[in-house]
Design a protein around this nucleic acid. Structure first.
Lengths: 188, 188
DNA sequence: TGTCATCTAGTCAAATTTGAATAGAAAATG
DNA sequence: CATTTTCTATTCAAATTTGACTAGATGACA
């Protein structure tokens, strides 16, 4: 759920004012559907919930030239922006690839230094998890699934791959790559 | 959901006759909770559903020495066993690491040859997905998340790691490792 | 022998996700 | 210009998951 919330808040933030269908379109054009499953229902549910929590609010309906059925436009409140950053920070530390992906999608909204710190933290979470997995006893002829070498191997492979991705991104961010919001010279 | 169904059916099958709490214990001792989230509610829900679909049935209650509150014992029906194999085959081909893990946990229930064929199929599914990911255009300064090199990189890393796991397991299974049910000389 | 902790077993409301359906407006077609 | 298709936008019931709670036995120990 927190992944959907992050994506929805991020999508609205980028556009300033937005509505459910536009969020849905973003998810499709961003190919988020490759890695997460964001069906219409989830998005509209997230919007309702975020609104009821005061994270977003119905936008001053001035409304830009619409062409179709009527829509509900929202903008992110101060509270919602805080929630966005909370979720973003959590995502960048999460060992879960889905959550992490959503975090990476919006990492440029945070200051570069903070991203570096979060990625280092993720790396150490993954390292700990790797140590645990490698300490697990396995049997060639396992009496239970938990001792199956291939099952443990799958998860070691996954965690190692996540660790490598984290390392790679960390290096690129440290090398000054990417266009972080806080470093951008706004024209105007 | 199909992951939970597969795990529940597999757990009951191994024990012959079983009940919700025992399934829950299996999930814990198998450390399935490391990779899936199988809360009590999901298991009992799956049991109810499986029963209503005729996949499992309340076992002849003769009931082995119980020591605690009363329980509902189930055994897997012929239909349920067919469902188990259907889910198992699907799991071994699935690119999803959670589903696949559940499949590997029970792969010895299938004949070795079939497992080999399924793993080869998974490998080709992953290869196709890798080709697609590698063909995606990326931008150093991406206008949208879908063109973010790191986002694409994360998923390439994941799929490559899954492909490597599949390859490794395939090699070991082909090399004659593991104790497949159909090759077992039953004593008796 | 009472009561406190722990293990066994399961239930339930609330939250969330899924999948399919609904419906208005514009564009295409004959 | 009537009709069908397509695009915009959302709704809703049903399925599933979550998280917290209920409750019966057994054992420990004072």
């Amino acid at each position: 759920m927190s992944t959907v919330r992050l994506l929805v808040l991020g999508s609205i933030l980028r556009r300033g004012v937005s509505h459910g269908y536009a969020v849905l379109r973003d998810m499709t054009t961003w190919r988020v559907d490759t890695w997460t499953n964001v069906k219409p229902g989830s998005i509209y549910h997230a919007l309702d919930k975020l609104e009821s929590q005061g994270m977003i609010e119905a936008a001053a309906s001035g409304a830009g030239a619409k062409l179709g059925p009527s829509r509900k436009e929202y903008s992110v409140t101060k509270q919602g922006k805080a929630e966005f950053f909370r979720l973003l920070e959590a995502a960048l530390v999460s060992p879960d690839i889905l959550q992490f992906s959503a975090g990476v999608a919006f990492m440029e909204w945070l200051p570069r230094n903070e991203v570096i710190a979060l990625l280092e933290q993720r790396r150490s979470v993954l390292d700990a998890s790797l140590r645990l997995l490698k300490s697990l006893p396995v049997d060639e002829r396992p009496s239970e699934p938990s001792r199956h070498p291939e099952l443990v191997g799958i998860w070691i492979g996954y965690v190692e791959s996540e660790a490598a991705s984290t390392e790679r991104i960390l290096a690129n961010v440290q090398a000054g790559r990417y266009d972080f919001k806080s470093e951008r010279l706004e024209a105007e």
